[in-house]
Simulated assay, not measured.
Amino acid sequence: MSDHSIDIKISKASKSKIESVDFNNLDFGKVFTDHMFVCDYKNGAWQTPEITPYQPLTIAPSARVFHYGQAVFEGMKAFKDEQDQIWMFRPEDNHDRINKSSVRMAIPEFPKDVFFEGLTQLLHLEKDWIQKGKGNSLYIRPFVIATEEAISASPANTYKFMIICSPAQSYYAGEVRVLFAEEFSRAADGGVGFAKAAGNYGAQFYPTSLANKKGYQQIIWTDASTHEYLEEAGTMNIFFRVGDTLLTTPTSDRILDGITRKSLIQLAEDTNIDVEIRQISVAEIKEAARKGELKEIFGAGTAAVINPISGFEHAGEKFELPKLDDSYATFFKEKLLNIQYNISEDPHGWRFRV
């Protein structure tokens, strides 16, 4: 997947910051490794990529990213097994998705061979930042921004593709309760909901802050047209367990094609758990909760893997979910982590050795 004939200019940091990092007390996404990958697009082509010491950028105030939001990103992780081998999980899907997001935002696609060679060399440089032990990982953030100095409303002619890395621990959000959206929307038909466009996330912050003031950690978004159907939770895809059946919504131009989401669907099928991929109404979930048939709700995404939800509110009605010893959330998280950390078999070829 990588090609060592690709020329990547590497400038190593004179001294590592790693000795100053407390790996037992990491705030997610606030500590960054020693190096970063950078590649510029100009004159109609991606230029020679570089790996440089992690440092601030110099960028003009007229750069189009600041004015028209041409920015997309991805979220990935690298893991280290007990033999000190480094693994990634389904990275081809991330590359495909950042290009799909780019196309939607009129950003040029990034070459696969350069992406994988840059990623591989960057992770080899930063291998000491990837800690062993289940729950420890290196979070990887590829992103693209429009850098052309121009404030006319049109796509840029120059871009910067970058990859930065941040060591992460097992993500625990505590008791999470959610609000089902009744007024605000995350995405609409024909929009950019399926893309990891930066503005999608910025637009969520205000409604989520209102939910926070009511004592809820997140929002489960509903469809923009009627607010009758459940779609996505904050930055995660959403799953419901009604009886012993797992329900999740189909992907669309409103919903992100989550890599953890599709992995969980496959694992459910592998273990003969019934999965239904269909529209899920607010009314259906509330009725299942009233009858005691709603066993679990959980979010799925790269950062937290699986985030169980303990309760929700909609239209002034509050519901608490049962605490289960045999939860699907725990079962699937364990199965997925065992694949990611090279502990169990990988029947679908999801692991990528770096």
Results as ranks from 00 to 15, higher is better:
residue 91 P to L: 00
residue 95 H to N: 03
residue 231 E to H: 03
residue 6 I to T: 00
residue 285 I to N: 06
residue 305 V to R: 15
residue 217 Q to N: 12
residue 85 Q to K: 09
residue 166 S to G: 05
residue 17 K to Y: 12
residue 244 D to T: 10
residue 288 A to P: 05
residue 320 E to P: 10
residue 213 K to H: 15
residue 340 Q to F: 07
residue 321 L to W: 04
residue 331 F to A: 09
residue 146 A to Q: 03
residue 254 R to Y: 11
residue 48 T to V: 07
residue 322 P to A: 06
residue 326 D to Q: 10
residue 79 F to V: 06
residue 98 I to R: 01
residue 281 S to R: 00
residue 279 Q to A: 12
residue 39 C to R: 02
residue 16 S to T: 03
residue 317 E to V: 14
residue 38 V to D: 15
residue 293 E to K: 14
residue 217 Q to K: 11
residue 214 K to Q: 15
residue 182 E to N: 11
residue 107 I to R: 00
residue 189 D to S: 13
residue 230 L to K: 03
residue 246 L to Q: 07
residue 165 C to W: 10
residue 174 G to S: 04
residue 277 I to Y: 05
residue 210 L to G: 13
residue 21 V to G: 02
residue 328 Y to K: 11
residue 49 P to Y: 00
residue 226 T to L: 07
residue 83 Q to G: 12
residue 194 F to G: 15
residue 286 K to E: 15
residue 307 N to T: 12
residue 167 P to R: 04
residue 307 N to H: 11
residue 287 E to L: 12
residue 175 E to V: 14
residue 332 F to N: 12
residue 167 P to G: 06
residue 320 E to I: 09
residue 329 A to F: 04
residue 124 H to I: 11
residue 209 S to G: 14
residue 131 Q to C: 15
residue 184 F to E: 15
residue 338 N to Q: 08
residue 275 V to H: 00
residue 39 C to W: 02
residue 215 G to T: 05
residue 238 I to T: 10
residue 46 W to H: 00
residue 312 F to N: 08
residue 197 A to R: 08
residue 116 F to Q: 03
residue 258 G to M: 01
residue 21 V to Y: 03
residue 297 I to D: 10
residue 253 D to S: 00
residue 307 N to G: 12
